[in-house]
Computed example of a mutant assay.
Amino acid sequence: MILEQVFRSDLKTLGLIPLNEKSLPAINSETYSQYIKVLLLTPGFELQVDLTHHKVKQPSLFFVSPNQHLEIKMSGPEEGYFVFYNRDFYCIQIHDEEVACDGLLFNNIHNMPMVILQSDEIPFFTSIFGQMAHEFGLEDTSREEMIRTYLKQVFIKSARLWKKQNLNTTLVQQNNDLEFFRKFTMLIEEHYKQKHNVSDYAELLYMAPKTITHRFKRLNLPQPNDVIKNRIILEAKRLLAHTKLTSKEIAYMLGYEDPAYFSRLFVQKTGETPTSFRTKFLSEN
């Protein structure tokens, strides 16, 4: 039996579980797939997020959305933390102006859901998770808001570290471009199944497609059209790897009425057909 601490009120849920060898089977089950997840992992842990296998060599934070596949394959010698919650407890969009991390920590266009911690950064996070665990044992009317405050601190600090680790450090101070980067990413996440072209997003942003391209260039990011297509292909890979849907069914799900065109796009972006990708993935896992 795992030591699960959970707060529930109305439709809101947030829970915390110590991450160790005993808790892995439960965490890898479907029980937590519906939740947004934050993991603090120590060296020795191994996990797969979507199609990428991660070996944790130094303490790291992972941020996993409900639409992402998560499997922890091996625990480390020291425990970690596993936090899960739903949008009713904490919705990134609602808190976006304060937290400013949607598009950076979750579903970012780099598909890099992690922050590596240096030795001087570890105490901050272990303290936050420890205080969060302590809060579960209190019967206090302010408990919910206190837990939410701790979660918010994790996001703010992690977003700062993510920007330093994944964006050109000389551009971190260019808040306007970073805000645009977040907003564009959020729009892709919301519309990628229906809107496939830069012009579609330019219309939503009330700007010219060339302006979007120039802003991405300043941030040293891939071309916006590649970002859109990469998000579509990532979802296709998830569905091929973790469902039994046919390539044609996946094409329709992703907004392509012509499955042959979708297959050509998949080959162009990956170098292999959807069928060969699925066969290769299943044979390796």
Rank of each mutant, 00 (worst) to 15 (best):
N230F: 14
F216V: 01
G271L: 01
A260V: 08
A202Y: 00
E190G: 00
F181S: 01
N111G: 02
E139W: 04
I128V: 15
N285P: 00
N285K: 02
K152H: 07
S23A: 12
M112A: 13
P222K: 01
S283C: 01
I250P: 06
K248H: 11
S263D: 12
S119M: 08
L117D: 12
P18V: 07
V154E: 04
H53D: 14
I72G: 10
I94P: 00
Q268S: 12
N168L: 11
F184E: 00
I228L: 01
E284L: 03
L19Y: 11
F45R: 07
G15V: 04
S283N: 07
L70D: 08
V198D: 07
K164E: 14
K164I: 09
E179V: 00
E203I: 00
F184Q: 01
F129I: 08
D200Q: 00
V99K: 06
G76D: 11
A241Y: 10
I156T: 11
M207W: 03
I128E: 04
N108K: 06
V227Q: 02
I233K: 07
N197T: 05
C91W: 13
F124R: 10
Y150I: 02
L24T: 10
D200I: 00
A236H: 06
K210F: 07
I147Q: 10
L19N: 10
I27L: 11
I17Y: 03
P123F: 14
V64T: 07
Y85Q: 04
E71W: 03
Y201I: 00
L117A: 08
H54T: 04
F181K: 00
N175Y: 07
L234R: 12
I116V: 15
L11N: 12
D96Q: 15
P59S: 04
G130N: 15
F155N: 06
L161Y: 14
Y261F: 14
Y85T: 04
N220S: 10
L41C: 15
L3Y: 11
L40F: 15
Q268F: 13
H69A: 05
P259C: 03
L282R: 04
L245C: 01
E145N: 06
F216Y: 08
E46N: 01
K244V: 02
T126D: 09
I2M: 05
G44H: 08
E257I: 08
V99H: 09
L151T: 06
M112F: 14
E189P: 02
G80N: 11
E78G: 03
K229H: 12
F89D: 09
F124D: 14
L24E: 10
Q48G: 00
V6Q: 13
K12A: 14
T243H: 13
I17V: 15
T270L: 02
V115C: 05
V6H: 07
S199K: 13
S142E: 15
